[in-house]
């Protein structure tokens, strides 16, 4: 039971990370109907930027660890968000009127470009996050000790997701995003600046992805330039699991996938861990392509 609970909480933490990345996929897909293959690499950039800021300006020495990490997260999110907007300008905006598959190829190209840029700047080896930033304590819940890190990660991702949810549901801009996702043409006719909406989507999605990258760095302690690829694919699986284009669905899908994967690794086979998510992906696309929580079935996929 102890092991089960450990795996379960681990799955929840990883699932929170998947969910944050999945939100970026699902938001962009909702508005542009484009799989942003470069999203996983924005996540990697988040992890590396976090490391750079930490090691270069000694943030945590000046303001204390907790505030330091919070400030770091804000800085990383802002920077990655800006990179996301630039990416959209450079690689996707010129292709708005082109066939959809051109944009997919462009996204793949952008992904290859960003991944190799990270490799050229930071090198191909694993980089290590400083280990003394957050206290390595465990909290006892129901007689089982759970590392504080896991709880913090799950909490942070839930807070970010709730903030996004209310932003999308309650604010004017959020309404505009939802409108543009349903029908771009009609949204334009209603006076919504769709280009601005897309820009905001490319600001929010990547910044959440960047936050997830920072969390992975803090949680696992080491990062690599290729990690965005695997996380990106798994997060995309999570987005499909929850029904792509569906924001609460991406959150649930991410957490569900994290738990499925942790359980699979523990009780089926650790060597096949990475294959589990892909099997889930294939099964879900075969049997329920609109996702577990997908209600929008208007489009045939």
């Amino acid at each position: 039971m102890e092991e089960f609970f450990q795996q379960f909480t681990n799955g929840l933490a990883v699932g929170g990370i998947y969910a944050l990345i999945a939100l970026g996929y699902t938001m962009v897909y909702g508005v542009l109907k484009l799989i942003n293959f470069a999203h996983g690499d924005l996540f990697t950039i988040g992890a590396y930027l976090g490391l750079s800021i930490l090691s270069s300006i000694g943030l945590t020495e000046h303001v204390g660890n907790i505030t330091g990490v919070l400030l770091l997260a804000v800085m990383v999110m802002a920077l990655v968000g800006i990179i996301g907007v630039v990416l959209d300008r450079a690689a996707y905006r010129p292709l708005r009127e082109s066939p959809r598959l051109s944009a997919v190829v462009s996204a793949l190209g952008a992904s290859i470009f960003l991944q190799n840029m990270v490799m050229l700047i930071y090198g191909a080896r694993f980089q290590v996050y400083p280990q003394d930033i957050l206290p390595k304590v465990a909290i006892h819940i129901f007689g089982v000790s759970v590392p504080l890190m896991r709880i913090l990660i799950l909490m942070t991702s839930i807070i970010l997701m709730l903030a996004l949810y209310f932003f999308i549901q309650k604010t004017r801009i959020g309404t505009a995003i939802r409108a543009a996702a349903i029908d771009q043409g009609a949204a334009r006719l209603m006076g919504i600046d769709v280009d601005k909406v897309i820009m905001i989507v490319f600001l929010i999605g990547p910044s959440l992805g960047g936050a997830a990258g920072l969390m992975v760095g803090l949680y696992y302690g080491q990062i690599n330039f290729t990690m965005g690829w695997v996380y990106g694919l798994k997060a995309f699986t999570a987005a499909i699991l929850g029904g792509i284009g569906n924001i609460p669905g991406a959150m649930m899908g991410g957490i569900l996938l994290g738990v499925i994967e942790a359980m699979g690794a523990a009780y089926l086979s650790i060597a096949w861990k990475d294959a589990i998510a892909f099997c889930v992906l294939i099964l879900i696309l075969m049997f329920r392509p609109t996702g577990l929580f997908g209600e929008r079935v208007a489009e045939k996929i």
Partner: peptide
């Protein structure tokens, strides 16, 4: 057989998944 009807970008993702599963199977 079961996935060929998927639309462009979905098929793309599934074939990536298949490629990764094959590679993991070979390594294991």
């Amino acid at each position: 057989r079961p996935i060929i009807h998927l639309r462009g970008d979905y098929l793309c993702i599934v074939t990536i998944g298949v490629g990764e599963i094959v590679r993991i199977a070979l390594i294991n």
